[in-house]
Computed example of a mutant assay.
Amino acid sequence: MLIIFIIFSGLILYNINKMTNSLCQQKEIPEERQPKVFRTINVLITILLLSSYVEILFT
């Protein structure tokens, strides 16, 4: 189950990064701020994925 969840998480992170890139282009976010935007979104999505894994693991 862990391997399936890791693959699923990778796909989610990839799609979220694609959507974040589209957001940065659409809102014309400067190049200097884009790494901070990506880092923030990736950290928050990773926390969400880890918490959902822990919830699935202990239920």
Rank of each mutant, 00 (worst) to 15 (best):
E32W: 11
L48Q: 04
T59G: 02
Y53S: 07
E28N: 12
E55T: 13
I7S: 00
I45E: 00
L11P: 00
K36E: 14
F5M: 05
L57Y: 14
K27V: 05
V54I: 09
C24V: 09
N15V: 13
V43M: 06
Q26I: 11
T46Q: 03
K36S: 09
T40P: 00
N15C: 09
F5S: 04
N42K: 12
E55G: 08
N17L: 14
I3N: 05
F8M: 13
T20L: 05
I47A: 02
L13P: 02
Y53R: 05
T20C: 03
Y14V: 12
E28L: 10
F38M: 11
L44S: 05
K36T: 14
K18L: 07
I56A: 04
I4W: 04
F38V: 11
L44Q: 09
Q34T: 05
N15G: 04
T20W: 02
S51N: 10
K36V: 14
R39S: 11
T46P: 00
I56D: 01
E28S: 05
K27R: 08
I16A: 03
F5E: 06
T59Q: 07
I7A: 03
C24A: 07
M19K: 06
E32A: 12
L49P: 01
T59I: 11
Y14C: 06
R39T: 13
C24T: 08
S51R: 08
L48C: 07
F5V: 09
I47K: 01
L50F: 04
S22P: 00
S9V: 10
E31R: 14
T20Y: 02
F58R: 13
F8H: 07
F58Q: 12
T46H: 01
S51F: 14
Y53A: 09
E55K: 12
V43G: 01
T59M: 11
I3P: 00
K36L: 15
R33D: 09
L13N: 03
E55F: 13
K18I: 10
V37L: 15
I41H: 03
R33Y: 13
G10P: 04
E32S: 08
N15R: 15
I4A: 02
T20I: 07
L44T: 10
E31M: 15
E28T: 10
Y53P: 01
S52D: 04
K18A: 04
I4P: 00
I3G: 00
S52V: 15
I3W: 06
L11K: 04
R33P: 00
I56T: 05
T20R: 02
I29M: 05
I6Y: 12
L50D: 02
L2H: 13
N42E: 12
S9M: 08
K27Q: 04
K27Y: 06
P35Y: 14
Y14T: 11
Y53I: 15
P35A: 12
F38H: 13
I6V: 15
E31K: 14
K36P: 02
L2T: 13
F5K: 06
F5W: 13
C24I: 13
S22V: 05
N21I: 12
S9W: 09
K36A: 14
R39Y: 09
Y14P: 00
I6H: 08
T40C: 02
L2P: 01
